[in-house]
Amino acid sequence: MGSETNLTLQDVAWHDAVGRLIETLDRPHFWRSMARLLGRYVPMDNWVVLIFGAGRPQVLAESQDEDGGSDSLFQDYLKGLYLLDPFYLANRESPKSGLFQLDDVAPECFEQTDYYQRYFRLNVVADEIHINVQLDLDRTLSLSLGSHCRFSQEQVALLRLIQPWVAGLMRQRCVFEQEIKRTPEPAPDWQERLQSPALQISAALSTREAEVAQLMLSGCSNKEIARKLAISAETVKVHRRHLYNKLGIKSQSELFLLFLQAQD
C-alpha cells in the first residue's frame, strides 16, 4: 500500500507559480511578477530591487506610486540618504547572502534617527525585510520588501522557508539583467560633503571626525560608534564635541541638515 501524500493545494499553487515565474526570467516584467507572487503569501506595500556595492546603489526595478510613477522620496534616497540606511551600512560592513529583518540591522535608537524621521517612516513606514544574494566581493543583489505594519512572525517564517527559491531565481535573473554590468556611480564622499565650501565651514573635519559623523547620522549610539571604530566611548564624545565646534552646530539634527545641504 503506497504512502500517503501530504502535498496541499497551496503547495501545488506555489510550485505552479514558481514554474510560471521561471518562464519570465528573461522578460522585462520579471521583478514585478516576483513581487506579485510574494505578495500573495506575505502582503507588502512597496518593494525595490537594488545592487548594493561600493558606489551609489543601482535600481533594477521598483514598485510604483498610486499615479504609476516613480516615488519622489525614493529619489532622495538615491541622492544620498542611502548612506544612512542601516541595510546599506550592514551590507557594506559585512556583505552576505540571506534574509535580514530591520531588527537585525537597525541601531538601538533607530526611531530617533533623522533617517527614520525624514525617510523611513514616510516611505517604508513600519517594517522592512531584505533578501540578499551576494554576487561577488563588492556587489550584493537585494530585494527589499516594505510594509505599513510590522511583519508577523508567521510571515517572516514563511519568507525564510521560501528564501532559497527566491534567492535562486534572483541569481538566475542576473544572466539577463543588463543594468548589473554597468559601472555604478561613485558614492558621495562624506568628508567632502561635510567640508563643502557652500556650507561655509571654517575648519575641515579630520577623517576620524567624518567617520564619527557618519555613524551618528546612521543612528549609532556612542557605545556602538566606539565598538565600530575600536575606540573608547569617551574618545567618541571628544570627536563629537570637536566636529560640532568645527561645523558651528549644537545637535545631531543640525548635522543632518548640513548633510542635506551638501547634497544639492
Rank of each mutant, 00 (worst) to 15 (best):
Q178N: 11
D16P: 00
S251Y: 06
L60P: 06
T113I: 01
E62L: 03
L89V: 09
P188L: 08
R160S: 12
G19C: 05
W14Q: 03
R40E: 14
F256S: 02
I131T: 11
E192L: 06
E234W: 05
A233S: 15
P95K: 09
Q172N: 06
L217M: 15
S147G: 11
L169R: 08
E62Y: 00
L215G: 07
G55D: 01
M34P: 10
W31Y: 15
R36A: 15
Q58W: 02
R36M: 13
I231V: 15
S97R: 05
D85I: 00
A17Q: 11
E93D: 14
V48F: 00
R171S: 14
S70Y: 08
L89F: 06
W31T: 05
T5G: 10
Q214T: 11
C174A: 11
F110M: 07
Q117H: 08
D138Q: 14
S142P: 11
L89P: 00
G69V: 05
D67L: 07
G146S: 15
I129T: 12
C109M: 13
V49C: 07
V124D: 02
T235I: 01
F256V: 00
Q153W: 03
S142C: 15
K228C: 07
Y244Q: 10
V48D: 01
C174F: 00
L199Y: 10
E185T: 04
Y82L: 01
A213Q: 11
V12M: 11
R182I: 07
F259Q: 04
Y82T: 00
V133D: 09
Q58H: 02
N91T: 12
L255R: 02
D65N: 14
D127P: 05
R240V: 03
N46D: 13
N222E: 14
G2F: 12
D71C: 10
D136Q: 00
R20A: 13
L141I: 02
V238F: 12
L205F: 12
R227W: 12
L135H: 03
R118G: 02
L89W: 09
W165R: 05
S251C: 07
I201G: 06
L255V: 10
L137M: 05
E209A: 04
A90W: 15
Q195W: 00
A198E: 14
D71K: 00
R173E: 03
P188H: 04
R118N: 11
I162W: 07
Q195R: 01
L158A: 04
V156K: 10
V175Q: 09
S232I: 01
D114T: 06
S221T: 15
C109G: 08
K250F: 05
M44A: 12
E128W: 15
S202V: 08
R160K: 14
A13D: 13
L38E: 08
A203M: 10
Y82Q: 03
Q101M: 12
Y119I: 02
